[in-house]
Write a protein that binds this DNA or RNA. Structure first.
Lengths: 355, 355
DNA sequence: GTTAGCACTCACACACATCAAGTGCTAATT
DNA sequence: AATTAGCACTTGATGTGTGTGAGTGCTAAC
């Protein structure tokens, strides 16, 4: 953004307005800025400056006799200056990367935990999601024989991801036959993506299995489903209720609109992917009231990190006037914090006294 | 409940009032009942009857010049007569019992799916939960060697529950050593509940493992965590947003209160366990405005079924004036519906054209 | 036992006056 | 030329009074 158009005092005033608005949630007047915020000039001067800032598009006036509120552009300026300030803390990411890598199997849990933390560190809704970048490939199969009609299918994927699913059959299978299937799977299915599992391949395995060919279909189905699950995007939200404390959401119709979007996770991912201003790896969505966007008066801010080949994003959702300074700091901290969290011994809750 | 106090006409009027209130959400007046509902007497007569019903405690009047609204007792009468009507459909449960049994490993998914269905069949929030009845016991262990620092731990529990978790070590383990651990675990840990895994047992296994004794702690920790997870109660909610469409929740503070309870799942389970009127296996919670209960103006209705030793409850949460008739029918249907759902071939979405 | 009629109650909507916050503009000051 | 004081003006918010309509309870007639 071209900040050069703004004199130092304009910047100072703009920042003060955003700060004040974030604190109190109401339009900011010239009087307040002159008296309580430490701007060293009279309210009249500030009014003049505000008028110019409004003309430049950084501020808007809800109605003639109200104070000013930051516009989308105003927030953008504010946030970008903050991001610049924080962006030094970039080193630790690779560390977590390595540490969390082995937890990838429980990506679900990581997402939940991350969004829970993001929410608990702030007064906003926590969000964590993985995008659907890249198809996963099978490395190797293994099976565990449990009973004639019941075995465990172990799938190992690229990037140290391991998934195990129980398979139930309606007929009996001998251990030797299961072993034969494992070998076949390791020949015909390895190194494929879910899309590449085709009918001819299945038929060939079925042929190999002879009289128990019927076990192939449910098993391959499970393989396919597991791979699809790993491929698809996923979002976890935590602490949605926290938003209700803000006056922005004192109108139920607005709450409904917002929760509606949050509940439809596809839609949310869509909003994220199309409407996000990214600066380094901190992404910011700022809802726009004018252009009738889906989530007006609402902002999202999150950071994307790359773990074991998957992109994982952590952040918060809150009112447009959310405390960006705090949030950006928190998100950066969270990256390192997660590290410690997952590394710590959390068994038994009451410490390890028992063991 | 003692219905004998109510004349047939009183019952008819009471039912009509509940119905009308459920439909329109507003107090019901005598005029409406006389004209639009098919009560064959004049409004004055109905007024007299209503006055008596109010005195008996079945109706309440928000203010002098408003119509009547069913009281908790009124709803109770209404619901009970419905439950009686539906309670014949009791046979199918054993069927689902058997079919879903093999899906138990993914109890999580069953819960999610069930609450999703309950919500989609109605215009209310779906709820599904398992209570923490009974501790799970280990039947057998199995391990799969993946790499020197990485193996898969397979745990089989009573009731055909199988869980597999990957274990990552910071040092190397030989396949033979892993095998030795599996044997030890099958001797010392089988048939225990999570509480019965004690320090002496762990020490003994560590001793057996000799130089690689350090692999015992993280592994047993995972076993303990897995068992705890199976033991603890869990709730899944779906479609919380749907509640916002009802005028009962047009006040944000009320929404906040409700969502607050729903988000704290322990609290919700507590409400469920203490405040529920049960009739057969259909349970009904009716919020009471007077007694300052947690969820005023809100009702829950759910059915409990027993699957593989675990109690699973499915139902909905909605405004007090929810469509009980529809909901009770739906819940009974859902039991059988789930059956078909889980049995169906859902692979590939676009049918099985591909295979 | 039922019904018609009427006086009464009360929430709600509407109009209207008042209030306070905040602006824009002009003229005076530095 | 920039800053400031002062003042008229705008506008949402708040409070008050009144009318309206839905609905009741009661009494008297059927």
């Amino acid at each position: 953004m071209d900040d050069s158009r703004l004199s130092p005092r304009k910047k100072q005033i703009l920042k003060a307005i955003v700060d004040a608005h974030i604190d109190h949630g109401e339009p900011v007047g010239s009087r307040y800025l002159a008296d309580d915020a430490k701007i060293n000039c009279s309210s009249a001067t500030i009014r003049n400056e505000m008028a110019e800032l409004e003309q430049m598009g950084y501020l808007v006036q809800p109605h003639t006799s109200a104070g000013r509120v930051p516009s989308k552009l105003g927030y953008k300026f504010y946030v970008e200056s903050l991001v610049r300030q924080y962006s030094e803390t970039k080193t630790e990411i690779d560390e977590i990367n390595e540490k969390l890598r082995y937890k990838l199997t429980e990506m679900d849990e990581i997402l939940s935990e991350a969004s829970r933390l993001a929410s608990s560190f702030t007064d906003y809704t926590g969000i964590a999601f993985k995008s659907n970048s890249g198809k996963v490939r099978i490395n190797k199969f293994e099976t565990v024989y449990i009973s004639p009609k019941h075995f465990l299918l172990v799938m190992m994927f690229a990037g140290d991801i391991v998934k195990a699913k129980p398979i139930h059959l309606s007929f009996s299978l001998r251990e030797e036959e299961l072993h034969r299937f494992t070998e076949a799977a390791n020949i015909y299915l390895v190194n494929l993506t879910s899309d590449e599992i085709t009918m001819p391949i299945i038929v060939r395995i079925e042929a190999l299995m002879g009289s128990v060919g019927a076990m192939v279909h449910p098993t391959v189905k499970m393989i396919y489903e597991t791979m699809s699950e790993l491929d698809t995007a996923d979002i976890k939200l935590e602490g949605v209720t926290k938003l209700l404390q803000y006056p922005e959401y004192s109108d139920v119709s607005r709450v409904r609109e917002l929760l509606g979007v949050l509940e439809e996770k596809d839609k949310l991912l869509d909003v994220i992917s199309t409407h996000t201003l990214s600066d380094d790896d901190i992404h910011v969505y700022i809802g726009d009231d004018d252009s009738g966007e889906v989530m007006s008066d609402t902002s999202m801010i999150f950071k994307t990190i790359n773990i074991g080949g998957k992109e994982l994003s952590i952040g918060v959702i809150g009112p447009k006037r959310m405390n960006y300074s705090k949030v950006i700091g928190m998100i950066n901290q969270l990256a390192t914090g997660l590290d410690r969290m997952f590394g710590e011994d959390k068994l038994l809750g009451d410490g390890e006294s028992k063991f």
